[in-house]
Every structure is written in C-alpha cells, then in structure tokens.
Amino acid sequence: MKPIQSIKLRKLEMALVAPFTTSFGTFHDKQFYIIETKDEDGNIGYGESVAFSSPWYNEETVKTNEHIIKDFLIPALKQTTLNHPEDVHPLFEKFRRNHMAKAAIEGAIWDLYAKQENIPLATAIGGTASKIDVGVSIGIKNTTDELIDTVRRSVEQGYKRIKIKIKPGWDVDVLTKVRDEFPDIDMMADANSAYTLDHIDTLKQLDDLNLMMIEQPLAHDDIIDHATLQKAIQTPVCLDESIHSLEDTRKAIELGSCQIINIKIGRVGGLTEAKRIHDYCQAHNIDVWCGGMLEAGVGRAHNIALTTLSGFTLPGDTAASSLYWKQDIINPEVTVQDGTITVPNGPGIGFEIDQDALEQFTVEQETISMNN
C-alpha cells in the first residue's frame, strides 16, 4: 500500500437521542476519536475509537486512547513500512492490550488501503454478503411498560433480533413480561457481567423463555465460571468482554464456556484479529455476531464490513444511525429496511463523511506528520 503521509486525531462529542443504560452506567452523550490517515494522493482512511470516557466496559478510556495512539502507536508506524493493513497487528503486539486504541488506527489504515485499491472495505477483508441482518440493543428502562413499548417499536421497524439489557432485580420477571407480549420474537439478554455463580438459580429460570442467548452473564475477565454456568443451563452463553484475542477464543471453546461469541472490532484490537477469531469460530461451529459500542457512522461502517464475512450467522447490533444519534457524521446515514442493511459498494467504508457535521462535533484536533 502507498505510505501514510499524516495522521489526524479528531476528538468528537456527540449527543445521543436518548439516555442508554446498562448494568454499569448511563450514557447521555459520547466522546471519542476519529482517526484520519492520509496518503500522498489525498486519499483519507477513517477509523473510530470506541472507548468510553470512564473505564466501565474495560480499562480503556478516551484519554488513554489518545495517550497510546500518540505516544506509542504512531511512533511505531513511523519506524516501519506497511505493505498491507495486516502488517499493523504484529507491529502493535509489543504493546500490551489497549485494543481499542489499536483498532482505531488499524481501522483507518484498512479504510485507506481499500480506497487505494478502489474496492469496498468488505471486499478487502474477504466479505461476500451484499446485505446483513441486524438486531437492536435496548438499555435498561425505568419501567417494564416503557421497555415493552420500546420493544414494540423495534419489532415494528423490522429488527431481526431484540437484545435486552438486564441486571439483578431487572431480569426474569421483566423478560417474562416481554416474552408474554411477544411470544415469537428472537430475543436475547445481555448482562454485562452483572452476575456471579451465586445467581445460578435465577439464571436457570431464563431457560423457560426460549432466549437466543444470554450475553456475558458473569465476570468480565472470566471463562472458567462461564463453563460451569453453561453446563448448568440450556440457554446458550455468549461471551463478549472475556474475549480479547484468538487465544481467548480458543481457550473458551475448549473449556465449553460458551456456544456463541460476540466479536467487537475495538475489543479485540482491530479487523485483522476479528477476522482470525471469525475464521476459528467458523471452523469449530461456533456462531458469531458483531456487537456494538454506541459507534458513530465510521465505526458503524466498519461493523457492517466485518459482518459481511460468511461466519456471521446471527444478527448484530449495527442498528440505524437515527436510533442512537441526533445527527451522524456520515452521508447517507446507516438505515435499516426490514431488518437488513444493504452493504455499500463504494471504495473503503462506502459512506461519505459529512464534513460539516464532523467539524461541528469536533472539540479538539491534531495532525501528525509521518515524515518527521
């Protein structure tokens, strides 16, 4: 690929349409970085950091992403010649974890490469699907009636799968009422690590609700207790926060810790590692789907590209832009028709950047030359 001439870091702040609540916190807006990699021909590749402002989901934050990108990752890129985006992953391996920072840079490089080759990002990574099935993620609500109303709207909009956030005290009774109201929908629960094995009797009750899965019910760094839980319940366990690499995937599958894995580009360090995890799961008959991190348009576009790989057999979290954002930074925004997204066929991520919106939401920016 042609050399990168400069890298721009844009810090954005965008308001959510409505508060989004999980077992670990409530979000009203989101700060994040857009990374722009530019070559000598003026091509620009875009990546998005998905870390939150506080270390709720994992140890990374917006501020630590900036530190790692500026002080370690970009200097490492200056010292090497990239022939292909897959060269980035081994280059960054010497830096422990910080996967979201790595994924933001690597994603921008993948997009730049695809634009240089004049092919869609989906094609560049080996994807083949022209449409992808998508679901929706619904946060914890103030009342069950409010939740049911939200589920009803999502079903009417055609989403192929409804994910409902749960926590102790907001679980079996709530999900039972939703199931009674919607006996035939594909529904799953996401616990975001809110339970322990002491809650096993509660979690066993979920078997009566015909759920697609329960996502990350136990500790964020656990694969041992999840194996115990999966043996005790019929509902498939899906791992999210526990899976950071192909090695984590291999161990979890060998232990019987799960039947499904959620692949998030930011959590695993980029598209290259995400592809490796996808390939391994496909070879071992483990279903995968693409999770979401309240991405804006750039991150959402990367998720769409990843989901075109053939092993993504379950609807992901890449819902329409308008479900989360008052205004997105891509044009056109991501839209959903009958529970599917049509994969864009333009070069790179396939969406144009809305430069006016990008400037409007930018609160800080810095351009770093790669030639000095």
Rank of each mutant, 00 (worst) to 15 (best):
P3M: 11
R10V: 03
K11G: 02
E13V: 15
E13Q: 13
M14Y: 03
F20D: 00
S23K: 05
S23L: 12
Q31I: 00
T37V: 05
G45I: 02
G45W: 00
Y46K: 13
E48Y: 00
V50T: 15
N58R: 05
N58V: 10
K63P: 01
P75Y: 10
T81I: 13
P90S: 05
E93S: 14
E93F: 09
N98D: 01
K102M: 12
I105K: 05
I105H: 06
A108F: 04
I109H: 04
L112A: 01
L112R: 04
L112I: 08
A114F: 03
A124I: 02
A124Y: 01
T128R: 00
I132T: 06
G135R: 01
S137M: 04
I138T: 00
I140H: 00
K141Y: 00
T144S: 13
L147R: 02
T150F: 04
T150D: 12
R153E: 14
S154L: 03
G158N: 04
Y159V: 01
K160P: 04
I162S: 09
G169T: 08
V174Q: 01
D180L: 11
M188P: 02
A189M: 05
A189W: 04
A189Q: 06
D190K: 01
D198E: 15
T202N: 14
K204P: 10
L206Q: 04
M212S: 14
I214R: 10
P217V: 10
L218P: 12
H220I: 14
D221Q: 13
T228W: 07
A232E: 14
A232T: 13
V237C: 15
C238T: 08
E241R: 15
K251I: 07
A252G: 07
S257G: 10
I261T: 06
N262I: 11
I263W: 11
R267I: 13
V268P: 00
L271W: 11
A274I: 11
K275N: 10
H278F: 08
C281P: 07
G291P: 04
L294D: 07
V298F: 07
R300S: 08
R300I: 07
H302D: 09
N303H: 03
T308Y: 05
L309G: 14
G311S: 10
D317G: 09
A320H: 10
S322N: 09
S322D: 11
S322W: 05
V334Q: 00
T335Q: 09
D338V: 02
G339W: 08
G339T: 07
I341A: 12
P344E: 02
P344G: 01
N345M: 13
P347G: 00
P347L: 03
G348S: 06
G350K: 10
G350V: 14
E352F: 07
E352D: 15
A357H: 12
L358D: 02
L358C: 02
Q360R: 13
F361D: 06
S369H: 01
N372E: 15
